[in-house]
Design a protein around this nucleic acid. Structure first.
Lengths: 209, 209, 209, 209
DNA sequence: AATTAAACGAGACGGTACGTCACGTCTTTTC
DNA sequence: GAAAAGACGTGACGTACCGTCTCGTTTAATT
């Protein structure tokens, strides 16, 4: 949905009003937290942002696309403000992963991030185009950081040499996301810790040699 | 969502027209596959089912609730028609899990099941009430089957005695669902197999004794 | 414009809410007098009438069509309330015509009637369908009354036997309407009187026998 | 409408681009004939004329004002191209009037002139400012020609000495315009002829001396 | 010729109203 | 007397133009 139909003449990004763009992104985040995704309307975003509806439709194809951009901006801000210095690598893989997964748990429990996240997940579930952008722009960069750390660990000899790194990343992130999304049980730091241990060590009984 | 406000006179379930009920559930499944969840409307369901709108509003609070009931019926049918005889227990845990996870992969890839599944996931992501019913009525019973099989394995000595069974279930189901939902990579049997092996054995390098 | 496109299923007039219908007609007359035809909007009519927009669109194709129906109702009311007892026929044609034309002048000068009249004239000027309905339903019945009176006069020997009655009617109504519409000069009773005299007697110098 | 608010700095007419001015007037005439007055937009005129919207707003207050100027130019062209040599005066008033009214009938029936004429009539009907300009600049000069001819006739003794000239002009032009605008009957040369005869001679039975 | 100021083309902007769609409620008609 | 049919008030949709407001770019009058 990031592309427009070929017959529609694209607007000129150089003439874009950045003040309006920011106001729209801010308003969409505020509103999605206030009223939820289902009751979020483009009219309300425009009104809250003090902007004409057409200014939104000119630059985004749907409210979900607005939220995606807003979330990207939010993620950038979070990285900047949070003093993010890269995925931790203390040499202790389990500890590093627990640190990051605990932070992810906290983020999932922080309604400021949760509302747009749920909105994008919902929208992406039934909109392949949006889902692709969501995954590509927001998720993949984060997953890549995990993968990088895991690769370092593998080369350092802490992981099985034939391990599938993307799979491993999803073994960490998947259960956490699943529990968050389905609400099967509360998301806690203990859950994150246990998950890391079990992913690394497996659940089978270890037979003594 | 399933309950009504106390002042609204509840309809008498005994007088319910089962022919209409089935027609509505069928129509909702057909339509969600045809036009997708976002463009699914109660008016269209009513028209397709040859039913008045009020007949839908009388028994369900939202289109998502209709779809949930339709999916429950679908799951029942699948179990019956598929000759389901309970979660397999051949004694070989890995083999049993792979069998089931492969079937789940197939189901995720079958658009007949995928459309309502995505719809419910989307709806549940932003509607806690529906999410609760979805989890409780559709998901939990399935997860319980995994858990039961894992408990048997633990008692048989194949799993670590202190393993957290719900966590383990989510380690199996979570990554699979994550990949399905986010589209990070194709869902294949190989993925299911590898996942089972890694969940059981862990991803760490096995140090020789 | 009174007919709908054949593929659109027509609403059932029997189920029409007459309260809403009246409210819409009243609101359109009030509003056109308040803000003028150009600033008259269907949204405002709906709001003022306490009615959904769709209820207007369901029964009328345009705001002009609403105004036409409103004017027809207004004309009916005026006839009823004004104690109208038919076109006067005292035997004195000139006097009768002056009476009626003076009343028409008064009506043109009464803003209650003028606003919708100007609106319909404006709309009809560029919309042949509407113009046809306007002429047929509102104008023709009035012109027919003139014609009837003139026919009586012709048969009574007061008019030339070969006179063209519709032409004569338009010689009376045309100049009056022209002056009203173009604003070339004020519309007064004196104008009406003089017009009647000149139509009957002509403008040429009468040569003595 | 032709004047601007005092705080707005007036543009310098000396620097006006006449190429653009003509293009705008031409485009407005073309478009009003193509799509009708209601669907005529300033944006479309600008696009068709290859001109910025602001260039229109700089010089005209409304699309109707553009059309009025375009019609004035059109009338000038018609007069020039038509080899107009002044209102005819052969001494035979009836013949002269018939000649001119027939030409007016032809003009009303020529869609090239009809479209802008209907547009201006419609716009003028609900916009007093425009109506005044329309009457003053386009209509009055034409009516003055009739009046002049009638004055000559009166002085020559062909008309009653106490006849009201503007009234007489409107007795000629009014019925014709009325029939054109309301569509009560077709506009023909015969109609023009008969009208002239009846205006001059009246419709009453002539009593023998 | 170089400067300069305004008109110009283009088009993004904050708005308003459009005509349509679906919502969830309510009423009418039919079987 | 349950339920189909569908009219209703409501409100958001996405579009079309409005009239205003920058932007560079001509263009024509003044240095």
């Amino acid at each position: 949905m990031s592309s427009r139909s070929p017959d529609a003449k694209a607007p000129d990004p150089a003439r874009r009003n950045d003040r309006s763009r920011r106001a729209i992104l801010d308003a969409s985040l505020t509103l999605v937290a206030e009223v939820g995704y289902n009751k979020l309307t483009i009219e309300a975003i425009a009104a809250r942002a003090g902007v004409g509806k057409q200014t939104i439709y000119r630059w985004w194809p749907s409210k979900a696309a607005v939220l995606l951009d807003a979330s990207l901006a939010l993620a950038d801000d979070a990285k900047t403000e949070g003093g993010w210095t890269g995925f931790p690598d203390t040499g202790d893989l389990a500890a590093d992963l627990k640190l990051v997964l605990r932070a992810t748990v906290d983020q999932f429990n922080d309604e400021k991030y949760e509302a747009p996240m749920r909105a994008l997940t919902a929208a992406g579930a039934t909109d392949p185009d949006l889902s692709a952008r969501f995954t590509e722009q927001l998720l993949k960069p984060q997953l890549a950081l995990y993968e990088e750390r895991l690769r370092a660990a593998r080369e350092a000899g802490g992981l099985a040499p034939d391990v599938d790194l993307p799979l491993t990343v999803e073994m960490l992130v998947g259960p956490l996301t699943y529990r968050w999304l389905m609400g099967t049980a509360p998301l806690t730091h203990a859950f994150a810790d246990e998950l890391v241990d079990r992913v690394l060590g497996g659940v089978s009984k270890v037979t003594e040699g």
